[in-house]
Design a protein around this nucleic acid. Structure first.
Length: 278
DNA sequence: AGGGCACGCCGGCTTACATCA
DNA sequence: CATGATGTAAGCCGGCGTGCC
């Protein structure tokens, strides 16, 4: 019996972020919260960047929202693409730098990642600082390379064009990943703000209901049926309101005094801290 | 004109290896 | 020294655009 089921406006937002190492899977899950099924509240947060968009929609209990879920089987097959890649990788050996060639094995056909001798054939190339710096500088200028630029850069770095290409691909992926994390943090903040706002509004609603129940019968009538001053559009000589367009001031029967009901439409921004009803 | 094919490039996902705490 | 975490080069796959036949 929490806030959620106290009234039909129950809206609970949850955002889980579970980045797994070495994986770009980001699961944005709604927490184990209860959402009233009568109203099926829907909340959509979207964020559009250059090439990235996060959109999540909460539409019922038990739903899980995944930002990006895709998984290859990881099973290798001899598709045309693979044959193509093998040819490409092994074909530009003429431009291959000797030093690099010592470290990089040009064998792409994997048999459970081992060659005939049972020894792992995959060696890890580590770019030196100079190479990394030049690549970084180049990336700052343009995050993608045309074939000409790739060739030039590869020659400068004493690397194969394929290596330059791979470096840029990975670099773009890292940049995107970083941006994703930033966006995710942003959305989490939005989520927290909306949750707070929801909690505040629920409490406000409860207070209003309690107030209504404690008022005498005539106060239950709709405001339009109450006596209204034709000049100032105020009810019963209340002291609140004024000036604010369609603000209706109700002088409550309680000793606490008046409160106002703002009837003009509200456009909510999660970054406007105070409640719109205040 | 348009369908099929080869090719290149890229994004996404994954793996394997190097390095470090 | 062993081990787990992290960074990253590279492999694989699918999609898309382009040029050619």
């Amino acid at each position: 019996m929490g806030l959620d089921d106290s009234c039909n406006t129950g809206l609970v937002l949850g955002l889980g972020f579970s980045p797994t190492h070495n994986s770009y899977n980001y699961a944005i899950k709604k927490s184990s919260a209860t959402v009233d099924h009568h109203v099926n509240p829907s909340l959509t947060l979207s964020l559009s960047g250059e090439s990235y968009k996060v959109e999540m929609t909460v539409s019922g209990a038990g739903d899980q929202i995944y930002g990006q879920t895709s998984s290859h089987s990881g099973i290798s097959s001899f598709s045309s693409g693979r044959i193509k890649r093998e040819r490409e990788v092994c074909g530009d050996g003429e431009e291959e730098a000797e030093e690099t060639a010592k470290r990089v094995v040009c064998s792409r056909v994997r048999d459970d990642h081992e060659n005939e001798e049972g020894v792992s054939a995959r060696k890890k190339l580590r770019l030196n600082k100079q190479q990394s710096a030049l690549l970084e500088d180049s990336f700052k200028l343009h995050s993608t390379l045309n074939p000409k630029q790739k060739q030039v850069l590869a020659r400068q770095l004493n690397l194969r064009p394929r290596q330059v290409e791979v470096w840029f691909q990975n670099r773009r992926a890292r940049t995107k990943l970083k941006q994703t994390e930033v966006d995710c943090e942003f959305l989490k903040k939005c989520c927290e703000t909306l949750t707070d706002e929801n909690r505040r509004l629920l409490k406000e609603l409860q207070d209003l209901k309690a107030l209504k129940m404690s008022q005498p019968f005539y106060m239950h009538m709709p405001p339009a049926t109450l006596m209204m001053c034709p000049s100032c559009e105020r009810l019963g000589g209340g002291g609140a309101g004024g000036g604010g367009g369609s603000t209706v001031a109700v002088d409550g029967g309680t000793a606490k005094g008046a409160f106002s009901i703002v009837t003009k439409p509200r456009i909510y921004s999660p970054f406007m801290k105070p409640s719109a009803a205040c």
